[in-house]
Write a protein that binds this DNA or RNA. Structure first.
Lengths: 166, 166
DNA sequence: ATATCTGCAAATCATTTGCGAAACC
DNA sequence: GGTTTCGCAAATGATTTGCAGATAT
């Protein structure tokens, strides 16, 4: 849904735009990492980001990826996540506030948002005497066995709550 | 309900009981670590467990603490937590299913449980096509600024309602 | 007995950092 | 041009592990 490969010449990627807006000095490797992040729809760890970036410019070093990812986190452009597995995963903040459901069988991560949960979290914090500053929720689930062919019941679920993102 | 707290003399600690029930070979150091865990009301990391155990038996090594804590996690007696800060924190499962609120100013951790959240989490997972296997929620909060000048009953202080188990 | 555990130190793993060379503003 | 960043490799910090001796069942 984005500009075709034309963005390769001079286009400024989504994340690069954010970097520029925060006054970061844009080097070739930062631009590349920003582009890789902009094109990613998952939650890569440093190793994976390095792999993707290195495929385009084999001169980049993993130390630079570590440094850049940390810088972007400090600038609020990325959020560090821990889905288990030992390595930190990165999630661009411009995807909006959301939570994650991890498929315990495949490791796949699904993003979702839910207003009711936001309200509930605020309320629980208040009950304990705190103002909610931040919060996170991770669900670990297993895909339902068989997508049983839509029972005769026509009543579609209470269809709504929060939009979910892949 | 339960045996009185007469378990101190030669007694078997809460966690040791669980170890025995799962058929673990009980060595002196495991018994000690189990006792330290049973007496803890917080979420110690390995370094801290080692400190507490080492204070009672200076022969114990930190490698053993690491090994034991991992064993107990595999046996479902402990749960590993990540509250940031780089080190894993441990939480006995026999405290029941709960979540955490971390005071961003002091780092103190408060446990809580909330039925509505449990139901909501299950529902969200179902909506996404998953059966909920596990889930966790962490709230990061700041103690409310000023105790509102509403009822000048007693002097202000940290004496807020709600017990915490750091 | 004897399979399992422990202590110690060395080994891993992810991440950070010192340093001279290279790149950006 | 001077400051900031980069690549490299060595340093770090948390956790794991190989091995020889100690222990529980």
């Amino acid at each position: 849904m984005d500009t075709p490969a034309s963005a390769d010449r001079e286009g400024i990627s989504r994340i690069e735009r954010l970097c520029i807006d925060r006054g970061l000095k844009m080097t070739g490797q930062r631009r590349l990492i920003a582009r890789v992040l902009s094109e990613s729809v998952d939650h890569p760890d440093v190793e994976e980001l390095y792999r993707r970036a290195h495929a385009r410019d084999s001169h980049i070093s993993i130390a630079t990826v570590y440094r850049t990812v940390r810088l972007l986190e400090e600038k609020g452009i990325l959020e560090r996540r821990d889905f288990g597995g030992g390595r930190a995963r990165y999630d661009p903040t411009d995807r909006g506030h959301h939570h994650h459901l991890i498929d315990v069988d495949t490791g796949k991560v699904i993003e979702f948002a839910d207003e009711r949960h936001e309200a509930l979290a605020r309320e629980i914090a208040a009950r304990l005497g705190f103002e909610l500053v931040d919060h996170r929720m991770e669900l670990f689930g297993r895909r339902f066995p068989e997508p049983q062919p839509e029972a005769p019941t026509s009543r579609r679920g209470k269809g709504r709550g929060g939009r979910d993102r892949s």
